[in-house]
Simulated assay, not measured.
Amino acid sequence: MSRSCVLSLLLVALCSSISNAFIAPVSRLPASISPPAERTALKAIDIVEPSYNLAAGSLGLGLIFGIPGSPLKSRVTAILGGIPLTLFALFLAYQTTTLRFTFDESNFSLVKSSGESTGENVVVGGENVWGYDKFVNYDFFPSQSFPILVYFKETQTPAEYWNIGPGESANSEEALAKGAVPGQVHFFPAIGNSNQLLNGFEKHNCAKIE
């Protein structure tokens, strides 16, 4: 990995960690937001507050690589770093604005900011709703204090999809020999408050490999 890539990851993680301290705790779904029809009978839904930390950190790095006069700026760094990071920041800001993670009495879900379903998962199909009792692991990368990616693994998805994408290595004989549990792997950028996500996983007793 190049020196500029390592610097980028570290600065994004630092921005995310510092900003997390100022985010409010989990709030109840506002009355103006209606949960999906099939979940209206539930008494309460906890919605994870959006976090723009990762988007802001990526935008800051994009500007650093692209600002005239910056010691890191050159045509190469602008093309390899500044432009991609800026576009990535815009994508993250859009995702942060339009998506929410929620915890209800039985499930962890990805929904639209309006509370409506996001539809079927684009990779393995099925709604983006996972029962807590189907979790086999979760974690934050590079760490919960410096979150860039959030990871969880579940067995709700049909087994024939478990080896798609990163699942191939996560379910390999080598990984299982080291203590991994078979299941469907999910990664998503830290567009929600990591402290609230952790609290939600712990509150609902989601399985975790220590």
Rank of each mutant, 00 (worst) to 15 (best):
L90E: 04
G131D: 12
Q95F: 05
S143H: 11
P68S: 14
R75D: 14
I67C: 15
F108M: 06
F141M: 14
S106T: 15
E120N: 13
V122E: 11
F91L: 15
V124E: 08
Y132C: 03
T77E: 05
V76M: 12
G66T: 14
G126T: 12
A93I: 07
G125E: 09
A93N: 01
T98Y: 05
P71S: 06
T102R: 02
L85I: 09
T86K: 04
R100Q: 08
N137A: 12
V136P: 01
G125R: 05
G66S: 15
L110R: 02
G119R: 12
P68C: 13
G60I: 01
E105F: 08
S109E: 07
F88Q: 03
A78S: 10
G62S: 11
E127G: 01
L92M: 05
E116T: 14
T102F: 09
G126K: 06
F135L: 10
I64D: 05
L87K: 06
L72I: 09
L61N: 05
T98Q: 11
L90T: 02
N121V: 02
D139L: 07
E127W: 06
F101R: 09
K112D: 04
E120K: 13
L63G: 04
Y94Q: 06
T102Q: 00
L61V: 03
S114I: 02
A93F: 10
V124H: 06
R75Y: 12
Q95M: 12
L87G: 00
G81W: 02
V124I: 14
A78C: 12
A89F: 04
I79Q: 03
D104A: 07
D139E: 11
L85G: 03
F140A: 14
I79Y: 02
V136Q: 04
I67Y: 14
L85F: 09
F88D: 04
E116A: 15
D104K: 01
V129E: 07
E127S: 13
Y138S: 03
G82C: 11
G81A: 05
S143W: 10
G126L: 07
A78H: 05
S106G: 14
T118C: 14
F140L: 08
G69Y: 13
T77K: 00
E127I: 07
S70P: 04
D104M: 04
G119I: 09
V76Q: 14
A78L: 14
P142G: 11
I83M: 08
F141L: 15
A93C: 08
V124L: 05
D139H: 07
F140H: 08
F91R: 12
T86W: 08
V124Q: 02
N137Y: 07
T77N: 10
F140C: 10
T96I: 02
V76R: 15
G69E: 12
G62D: 00
G82W: 01
E120F: 04
F103Q: 00
S106C: 10
N107K: 11
S113G: 04
A93M: 10
G119K: 11
F91N: 13
I67N: 03
T118M: 13
L61Q: 08
A78W: 06
F101V: 15
F101L: 15
A89R: 01
K112N: 13
G60N: 10
Q95V: 02
T97C: 09
F103H: 03
F65N: 00
A89S: 13
G115W: 00
I83C: 04
P68V: 12
